[in-house]
Amino acid sequence: MDQKTLAAYDLDAAAFAKDWLEQPAPVDLHEIVERFFVRGGNSADIGCGCGREVAWLNANGFSATGFDASEGLLAEARQRYPGFKFAHAELPDLKGIGTYDNVLCETVIMHLERAQIAPAVRRLLTAVKPSGILYLSWRITDNADLRDSQGRLYCAFDTALVLGELKSTSLLLDEEVVSASSSKKIHRLVAKKPGLEIRE
């Protein structure tokens, strides 16, 4: 994870949490989850922030655990949603997170340096159980990397960098849209991991 980005989230965790919770509900994301996620399976929200989507997932039949690299944001999540599980994990390594039927990673990987993006996508895929679902999105930055006023990195990269790591999967959704929640341009993918081969 880019350390300046992580420091920005830790420094202003409460302000970021307030901003996200005041945004319109991400109804487009929720529709995708309802359409593609394995219902009744266990789910992981990688880069869960203040826990908003973990709460929604649990309330809608997707038992979920939240993971984030920012201790400040994890503290906000635990305070706001004490009934749910949150733990520290950092891309690209995601040490010790286990495997899940559904893995959601909403607008996180653009905070990584370009060299870390492909390894991060590979690692996300290893966290998905056979026949499970990976939802992955990132905010689009055209032409060049940039940092916002708070110091957060937004890496510019070609979609092919991500797709190259998902060749073994069935791509169920691939689109570039404006997020209903943040009003930012994002690219999002839904990929289904192959199932286990049954040998006679």
Rank of each mutant, 00 (worst) to 15 (best):
R188Q: 15
D142A: 14
I140H: 13
F62D: 13
V178G: 01
E176P: 01
A13C: 09
I32N: 09
A13F: 07
L104S: 03
L153N: 00
E71K: 13
A180P: 10
L163M: 10
E31N: 13
D19E: 15
G132E: 00
S149Q: 12
V27M: 08
E106Y: 05
R52Y: 01
E176L: 03
E34F: 08
G40D: 02
G83T: 05
D12K: 15
G164D: 02
G72S: 01
F86G: 05
K18E: 14
A59Y: 10
L94A: 09
L125V: 08
D45C: 05
F157P: 02
A156P: 04
A77S: 08
V162F: 02
L173Y: 10
L163Q: 15
L6A: 03
I133N: 01
R78W: 08
R122D: 15
M110T: 10
L189M: 07
E90T: 08
F84L: 13
K129I: 12
S183A: 12
M110E: 00
A59F: 10
K167Y: 10
G83M: 03
D28T: 14
Q116K: 06
L112G: 03
M1I: 09
A127H: 07
S183P: 01
P119C: 14
L171M: 14
Y81V: 06
S137H: 05
D68A: 12
A15G: 11
L94P: 06
C48P: 08
D68Q: 12
R152D: 08
T169C: 15
I109C: 05
A115N: 12
S131F: 08
D174S: 08
W138H: 11
E176S: 13
L112D: 09
A64K: 00
G47C: 03
A115R: 11
V190W: 07
E106S: 15
A89P: 04
E34G: 15
E22M: 12
L104D: 11
L163P: 04
A13T: 06
R78F: 12
F67E: 07
S183W: 03
S181M: 00
L196I: 15
N42W: 11
E165L: 04
R78G: 11
L153M: 03
V190Y: 09
